[in-house]
Design a protein around this nucleic acid. Structure first.
Lengths: 162, 162
DNA sequence: TATTGTTATACTCTATAACTATA
DNA sequence: TATAGTTATAGAGTATAACAATA
């Protein structure tokens, strides 16, 4: 609750010069789902970035590896749709992972335009290690939540983006 | 549930070429709070961007205006801390809002290095209108949530980023 | 000496247009 | 004609270093 600003007693010509707030009120912004989701995403992704640094992976690289690991033979187009990445931006991502010997492109059995993406043995190992690190860090973050409401949070977030 | 891949009967030398998945399994990524928060943030922010387009405001411009409206006399540094924007990046944001006649810089009463930011009358009007539009759109998005769990979601998100 | 605000700049992320090879 | 993948490129967003003025 904010105190009523006292009227200047002596100088009616002066503009009502507000004193700078000692405490910033962000309650309106924080009442917005969009603002809060964005802030929470920035915070949690910072932890993910940190976890992935030793693997020399960005979050999007990690997402690609994880999807390829669980969906061997997946195409670039399917990756683009699943991750909401535009095709031109995926080219470099997959290309770099391939150059590092983590991902392989095999001929697609049904469509000669497409490539079937698979992990190499090294890719499998790196992905498993990175998934362990990220999952652990994520569980750490989720411990900020009261009791075990992380499943509630996941359910509500999914309702927003699906 | 995934069917077991049948072993190729005739050619043992062929690498086990997986058929491309017809449905992408993203369940691991979706079990991560970070991934889900990011996806939800992207979805909800897209709606905010759309709402703000007629006002010629980006989300960060809107956030600045809203904070200045509710915290008259706020400084750039306080804005930076509240919104997690780096000082060099705020300069242009506030400068553009000032150039549009929405924000005023007044001399800070206690610190001659700083400026006290206030909205002009036009800024007050635009901010009020934009806040109405964004709040309504946000409530629309929140209706994707079951029952009225939007307050639960806000509480859990805040626990993550505070 | 530390902090507020600023300039210049580099780096990353995201988006668009246009092309090829194939369906 | 439509789609998968690619190239080139533009624009937005984010980050660091260095500086002036003031505390």
């Amino acid at each position: 609750m904010k105190a009523i600003v006292p009227v200047a007693p002596a100088d009616p010509a002066a503009a009502p010069q507000p004193d700078p707030p000692d405490r910033v009120d962000a309650s309106f912004l924080e009442s917005l789902v969009g603002y809060s989701a964005r802030r929470a995403a920035v915070t949690t992704m910072a932890a993910v970035v940190e976890q992935l640094t030793p693997f020399e992976l960005r979050p999007v690289d990690f997402s690609v590896l994880s999807l390829v690991a669980r969906n061997p033979g997946i195409t670039s187009r399917q990756l683009c749709q699943a991750l909401e990445v535009l095709p031109p931006n995926l080219v470099g991502i997959v290309g770099a992972l391939q150059k590092r010997g983590l991902v392989e492109r095999r001929p697609h059995p049904l469509d000669r335009r497409a490539a079937s993406l698979c992990l190499t043995a090294a890719g499998e190992r790196l992905t498993a290690d990175a998934e362990r690190a990220v999952a652990q860090s994520d569980a750490e973050i989720a411990r900020r939540l009261p009791a075990d409401e992380s499943r509630t949070l996941l359910r509500l977030l999914r309702a927003l983006y699906r």
